[in-house]
């Protein structure tokens, strides 16, 4: 039986993560709470807006209303990556070789481990950022598509166009697909492994009753789970053309509330599904078998993260009733 260790943080939880084995909860106020033999509170920002886990799993990169970009490490040490500035840093991303990217307005900045900095200007506000799994490439979601920039060298960014506002961007773990969530209730995807010069292949993933705010790739990239419906919408990506012409799975369907957050297990084809009433289910993709991880709580689930072995699931809610589930009890 799963057991839940609750922690009440009394603030909108924006993100959660395991830094090494240490669970952390990032709160909208700007505080990040670290559970390491007791509760440690780190005042990183005046207003926190975005977070990203570093690729080595040891650090949390954050951006805030104060214009700062910070990094919190598993041992509790804090690093200021960029000092206070006027504009909100509303999106951050972590990449290979400890690279970090953040965007404020129409400018994205990449900070490399050797302290060098590269900036990229877009014509419109950058709403989402993601590093490609291979090579130092940065995807920037913006109005009417995504720009894919090469961090090194001077090659111009590649444009992936699709009409409409793109709010979030993610690469499939194998780097074959680029997917965005849109202002409309839809996802849009591009196939990246086409022949050079060939026409871009698009994937339209529509039919959601609400905006898609949470996306999570299964461990081997065979599936992409998403929120925005009364069940988790899970698109198949194992075929050559991804989900084109295929229907998604609908897991953990509820009658009276919506899925607000999804997090795929790090090794198994299993997805944790968080709902608008605070309930959390684990659902196996192969047979849709469900297990209750947490009963409904005070507010919608806004954040979830598995630890590396996949035994612990940290979750956070809009009301601040957070916790860690041990699925083995």
């Amino acid at each position: 039986m799963p057991t839940v260790a609750p922690i009440d943080l009394d603030d909108h939880c924006l993100a959660t993560a395991f830094l090494g084995d240490v669970p952390v909860f990032a709160l909208a106020s700007g505080q990040v709470v670290r559970l390491d033999h007791g509760t440690h509170r780190h005042e990183l920002h005046d207003g926190l807006l975005a977070t990203a886990l570093t690729w080595d799993g040891q650090g949390l990169v954050t951006g805030g209303e104060d214009g700062k970009v910070m990094r919190l490490n598993a041992d509790g040490s804090e690093t200021t990556l960029r000092g206070p500035a006027r504009k909100w840093v509303s999106v951050v991303a972590a990449g290979p070789q400890n690279a970090v990217a953040f965007a404020d307005g129409k400018t994205a900045t990449v900070l490399l481990a050797d302290k060098t900095e590269k900036t990229f200007e877009e014509a419109r506000t950058i709403e989402g950022l993601a590093f490609a799994p291979k090579g130092l490439r940065l995807a920037m979601a913006r109005y009417n598509g995504v720009s894919l920039a090469f961090v090194h060298g001077s090659a111009p960014a590649l444009d992936f166009e699709w009409k409409g506002a793109h709010n979030q961007v993610t690469f499939s773990p194998d780097g074959r697909f680029l997917v965005t969530s849109m202002q409309e209730n839809a996802l849009h995807g591009w196939k990246l492994d086409g022949k050079p010069g060939a026409e871009q292949r698009h994937m339209r993933m529509t039919g959601y009753p609400a905006k898609v705010k949470s996306l999570s790739w299964s461990s081997k990239g065979k599936w992409l789970a998403s929120s925005g419906a009364p069940s988790a919408i899970v698109w198949p990506f194992s075929a050559k053309d991804g989900p084109m012409g295929k229907a998604p799975l609908e897991l953990g369907q509820r009658a009276d509330t919506m899925v607000t957050c999804v997090a795929c297990h790090p090794t198994e084809d299993l997805v944790a599904i968080g709902f608008g009433d605070g309930m959390v289910l684990a659902v196996r993709i192969a047979d849709s078998k469900e297990a209750l991880l947490r009963r409904p709580g005070q507010g919608p689930i806004t954040a979830m993260a598995w630890n590396k072995p996949g035994r612990l699931l940290a979750f956070g809610s809009q009301a601040g009733d957070c916790g860690v589930v041990d699925i083995a009890g």
């Binding site: 129409k106 506000t125 409409g164 506002a165 849109m182 202002q183």
Partner: peptide
Amino acid sequence: IVESDEEIYEMNN
């Protein structure tokens, strides 16, 4: 006070 760049989005409909 929050500074923001005016961004007009046409809905994709």
